[in-house]
Simulated scan of single mutants.
Amino acid sequence: MSRTTPATAFLRRQGITFETLEYEYDPSVGKLGVHAAAAVGEPEERVFKTLMAEVDGKPVCAVIPVARELSMKKLAAAFSGRSAAMMKQPDAERITGYRLGGISPFGQRRVVPTVVAQEAESLPCILMNGGGRGIQVRLSVADALAAMKGRFADILVPQRMP
């Protein structure tokens, strides 16, 4: 039986079908999301991380692939703002109700505008933090977007060609 978190309870209340995957959380690894993808045996392109930021001083949520980088300029543009910055850890934890390393876009304490990297649009399913360290949820992209009341946006730093 998997653990119930505010995120999984939220998804159940919404009637969303999802699967919970648990793994050994290791805070010493450099890239937690990449580690999570490997730990649950999923390609990095399908595992997304939840980042809390501020656009023109207002909280927003960005959901991006774990191996990619968020563009602050594109994030600001996605919300018709002038500037964006990552939210400070204490603020992110207070607003979401989750600890860093376990922030989920589902069931946050405070509902904030959310964008998902447009790269998710073509995927059959997506994995995201399930509301706790070492917990991922797998669900359809359409269900994920509906549950978080999000929208797709071009928010990633372009990948460099080798």
Rank of each mutant, 00 (worst) to 15 (best):
S2Y: 13
R3I: 15
R3E: 15
T4L: 12
P6C: 10
A7L: 04
A7C: 03
T8C: 05
A9D: 13
F10S: 01
G15H: 04
T17M: 06
T17P: 00
E22P: 00
E24S: 10
D26W: 05
D26N: 12
P27M: 08
V29T: 11
G33D: 09
V40W: 06
E44V: 06
E45S: 15
E45H: 09
F48G: 03
K49T: 11
A53G: 08
E54L: 12
D56E: 09
D56Q: 00
G57N: 14
K58M: 14
I64K: 04
V66N: 01
A67F: 12
E69H: 12
M72W: 12
M72A: 11
A78P: 03
A78N: 04
F79R: 09
S80D: 14
S83G: 13
Q89R: 13
D91K: 09
D91Q: 12
D91W: 01
D91T: 00
G97T: 12
G102D: 05
F106V: 02
R109Q: 09
R110Q: 14
V112Y: 08
T114N: 01
V116I: 14
V116N: 06
Q118V: 11
E119N: 10
A120G: 08
A120L: 07
M128V: 12
V137H: 01
D143Y: 05
A146H: 01
A146C: 03
M148C: 07
F152Y: 03
A153Y: 00
